[in-house]
Design a protein around this nucleic acid. Structure first.
Lengths: 144, 144
DNA sequence: CCATGTGTGCCTATTTTAGTTACATAAACG
DNA sequence: CGTTTATGTAACTAAAATAGGCACACATGG
């Protein structure tokens, strides 16, 4: 699978830790350890989905478009995944076979149920949760 | 995403509709509408996972290794997916950034919860359910 | 005007996926 | 025993997805 959900979540969690200061794509890229252009591409998808806003020019960068406890991992997943399908059906089963003719309709319903369970669970975690968890980890390491 | 779960489920559902007669890879391939070698590759993974058995030679083919109501879509998913991860983490976040250093540990737990929800739901459907649903569709079409 | 930073088009490399050919091996059957 | 049927798997090709990167037009603040 791809890492876009992980990177997008990293981006939003990072922004949340910056206490209202805009984060530049270069700064975020250094935390993710990748290219700023890649970060900007993801940020533009997140902005299109209404999760972030960006200010151009000097002093600019990305901000969350709404409070971190109102952005769930499901929002992130929907923002970055074009079709949002975890499993694909097979293109052209044989329509002259009874099984081939009907398998996709049946399977689609079962897969949809499984993907719904996934989405419902993703909706239970917010960016605020992520930032809190990260902060807790940092405190733990500090005490170690 | 890939179509291997769909094809593997198609294979098993097809075998279940054959009333105990072994299914050849060529027959299954004609239902799926693909190449027999591809079916055999999937069948060998299913056999390794203990879901099917194959008999070589004349009159041979694939059979379910246990009753269809004891094979779930989770079993199929586990059989064909090497690592079974829906989402990947990003390789090398920057260890010098507090967020980069901790994001993967935190995200891993959240993603695992979501994937568990997916798996639990996949475990609720058996190959017997699939075959029953397909049979019901065939009856519906017959009445139309 | 100049420095900073976004948004995006275009390109490359790598990996995954699907599909195909070929052949050694195994079993059944006359 | 040899022919036929069928599996299991290696090797290969083609296409698509993924990640990464460069370049530059455009926007903004000083």
């Amino acid at each position: 699978m791809n890492t876009r959900l992980a990177v997008a979540t990293h981006i939003l969690t990072f922004i949340q830790t910056q206490a209202g200061e805009p984060s530049t794509s270069e700064l975020i890229a250094s935390s993710v350890n990748t290219n700023p252009a890649l970060i900007r591409r993801l940020l533009s998808q997140l902005a299109r989905a209404g999760l972030t806003t960006s200010r151009m020019g000097s002093g600019g960068g990305a901000l969350l478009a709404r409070p971190a406890d109102q952005i769930t991992l499901l929002d992130v997943y929907n923002a970055i995944d074009d079709d949002g399908e975890v499993f694909a059906l097979h293109d052209q089963p044989n329509p002259r076979c009874p099984v081939g003719r009907n398998i996709n309709g049946v399977l689609k319903a079962r897969i949809a149920a499984a993907e719904k369970a996934l989405r419902d669970q993703l909706a239970r975690t917010t960016i605020a949760d992520m930032a809190d968890d990260v902060a807790a980890q940092i405190r733990l390491a500090g005490n170690g």
